[in-house]
C-alpha cells in the first residue's frame, strides 16, 4: 500500500493514536493511587489552613489527623445540590461552633475555581478563604491563590443589605474603605470579577441553605 493513500494515512493515524493513547492511559492507571492520595492531602491541608488549625509536621497523616480531630464535615443538601459543609470545633467537643465553612465552586476565566470559605456561625464575618483548584492565567489570574490576595478576605464583613452581586466586592467601590471590599489583581480584571461573581452567588445560596438547615434543626430540637 502506498504510504500517501487515504487508507494508509487513516490507518496510520488510528494506529498511532491507539498506541500512544494506551501508553498515556497506562501511566495514568499506574499512578492513580498516588494522585488520589495527593489530592486528599491537598484537601486536608487546605481545610487546615482555612480553619487555622495547628498541625504537627507536614505529612499527609499530620494534616489528616488535625482535620479529623478538629473539623466536622457534613453534606448539606439544598436546591438540588450537595454542599460539603465544615464546622469547627467538632460537636462532640461540647463547645459552641466558632466557625463554619463550605466548599464553593464556580466558573473562572478558563476553568472551574473551587475553594473553601470560612465564616462565623452567624455568617456576619468572613474568617478566611482558601482555594482548592484554579486554572487561571499563570502570573496574572493565577495570583488569586497567593497569600497576599487571600489574606485580604480575613475579617471582611459581607454586606447582606447590598444588592446580591455586591455582598462582597473585589475591586473598585464607591467607598474605598468599605468593610466588604478587597483589592483586585492588577492585570487580572476578568479573574477578579469572576471570583467576585461566584463568591456572591455562592454566599447567597449557602446562606439560604444554611438558614433553612438551622431552622429545621431548631424545629427538631423543639419537637
Amino acid at each position: 500500500m502506498k504510504n500517501d493513500s487515504i487508507a494508509y494515512v487513516l490507518g496510520f493515524m488510528l494506529a498511532v493514536s491507539v498506541l500512544f493513547g494506551t501508553a498515556v492511559s497506562l501511566v495514568h492507571h499506574g499512578t492513580k493511587d498516588m494522585l488520589a492520595r495527593n489530592e486528599q492531602m491537598h484537601r486536608n491541608r487546605t481545610v487546615a489552613q482555612a480553619f487555622g488549625l495547628e498541625v504537627e509536621g507536614r505529612d499527609a497523616a499530620d494534616y489528616e489527623q488535625a482535620v479529623a480531630e478538629h473539623v466536622h464535615e457534613t453534606m448539606l443538601k439544598a436546591d438540588g445540590r450537595t454542599w460539603p459543609v465544615f464546622q469547627h470545633p467538632r460537636p462532640e467537643s461540647g463547645q459552641k461552633p466558632d466557625a463554619v465553612g463550605f466548599e464553593f465552586m464556580g466558573q473562572g476565566v478558563w476553568d472551574v475555581i473551587r475553594g473553601i470559605l470560612v465564616l462565623t456561625p452567624e455568617l456576619d464575618r468572613i474568617l478566611s478563604l482558601r482555594l482548592l483548584e484554579q486554572h487561571e492565567t499563570p502570573g496574572l489570574g493565577g495570583r488569586i491563590e497567593e497569600d497576599w490576595f487571600l489574606q485580604q478576605f480575613q475579617n471582611i464583613i459581607p454586606n447582606w443589605d447590598s444588592p446580591k452581586d455586591r455582598r462582597v466586592i473585589i475591586g473598585q467601590s464607591l467607598d474605598p474603605e468599605a468593610e466588604n471590599r478587597v483589592d483586585a489583581i492588577t492585570g487580572a480584571t476578568q479573574t477578579s470579577q469572576a471570583l467576585m461573581r461566584m463568591l456572591n452567588q455562592e454566599l447567597e445560596a449557602f446562606r439560604k441553605a444554611f438558614m433553612a438547615y438551622q431552622a429545621q434543626a431548631a424545629r427538631q430540637d423543639n419537637g
Partner: peptide
C-alpha cells in the same frame, strides 16, 4: 509517517510524552 500528516503525528507523539511527564510530576511532586 505519511508526509502530508507528519506534523499531526509529531504533535500527537509530543503531546503523549508531555502528558506522561505531567502525570508523573503530579504524582511525585504535587
Amino acid at each position: 509517517i505519511p508526509k502530508r500528516i507528519r506534523m499531526m503525528v509529531q504533535v500527537l507523539i509530543i503531546a503523549s510524552f508531555v502528558m506522561m511527564v505531567d502525570i508523573m510530576i503530579r504524582a511525585s511532586a504535587p
